[in-house]
Design a protein around this nucleic acid. Sequence first.
DNA 1: GTCTATACGTCGATAGAC
DNA 2: GTCTATCGACGTATAGAC
Lengths: 212, 212
Amino acid sequence: MSDPRAEPRRRGAYAKGVARRQEILDRAIEVFAERGSDRTSLRAIASAVGVTHAALTHYFGSLEELLIAVYLASGDADGEREPPSDDLTPVGMMIESARTNREVPGLVQLYSSLIATALEEGHPAAKEFATTRFARLREELASRIAAQQASGLIRGDVPADAVAALVIAASDGLQTQWLLDDAAPQHEALAALELMLRGSASRAPSGGDGAQ
Amino acid sequence: MSDPRAEPRRRGAYAKGVARRQEILDRAIEVFAERGSDRTSLRAIASAVGVTHAALTHYFGSLEELLIAVYLASGDADGEREPPSDDLTPVGMMIESARTNREVPGLVQLYSSLIATALEEGHPAAKEFATTRFARLREELASRIAAQQASGLIRGDVPADAVAALVIAASDGLQTQWLLDDAAPQHEALAALELMLRGSASRAPSGGDGAQ
DNA sequence: GTCTATACGTCGATAGAC
DNA sequence: GTCTATCGACGTATAGAC
């Protein structure tokens, strides 16, 4: 659990404030990991962290932004960040991510709640979080998929960006289904998707006919 | 907690009460269809319906149960109920459902919020709603898929229940992606899934080699 | 700059009057 | 059966202590 926090902080915040903010954030992450995303009131988090609820708004502006920060920082801390090999399929990445999420179910709860908030009107911070997350993920996955289509690893008769959106949607949806009911065939569904994506319609990786 | 009538209302309610409840429910559905799932406080709904918020809890027990009732009744009213032909693929059903949902975006918001609530602890009504919905949908879809695998319409090398979970997850996830960003390739992703499910690995529906 | 103390308006829920 | 009254908890905003 190393902690290389060289995160670029906006504007002229000073070391003391940044450190304190990070300290509060780390503690909040622990709270979420332990107790799930229940008790997610400003006052409850504040008392767990050891400050008053006003201090949280001082550093994070609003509950919504605090929750977003917690989610983002949790993902970073979990080492969810990328050194995946080029041959790892998108579905493989999903499985990896789902496995770490399974160990900290509170984060999936939190994620689901953030998405629901983003869908409502009048929550610009949550909306921007969700929109940029999906856009970035789709872009990342699509280019990876396109490369794997070119190498024949993934079938070439489906558009890369559509497959990216599909894989993300399936990952999100299956996690919630599994969280609600252990009997949901999450792993089998991912395996099926993996199988169906296999480069069955393409030749050996010799010809450059992959995409389209 | 210590409330003795934790159980939902038994079927012994009288005609007058039932009619009034339905009246309130219908009005609440209109409110959601018009204004989305914002302003979803008991007081806001009550004032739109023309009663006080205490009256709503009298008929529905809690805000959570009212929201569930609104969602369920909206689905029924939309004619989302099934007379789909046996040849309609699961993905086709998703597209159909997504099209009606697109006309009433408030319902997707509401659905997403209900799922997020169900994932938290201490919300048994929402949890039961979500769990039974997914279980029923998976069961329905799986048997339909198995039949179409036997007839060669869907490839037979993937387990029917896994495909069912996958299709539901993809449908849910793609709808939220699209709702957040019109540029999300919802339709293309569904088309890709449809294509990949096609019975490419199976022969003509003569031999009984289809499923498993 | 940090943080506490305090206050405001709204929320879901409940008790009791009519 | 429906209202009024009230409760505790919530998110937010602000004043001022360090």
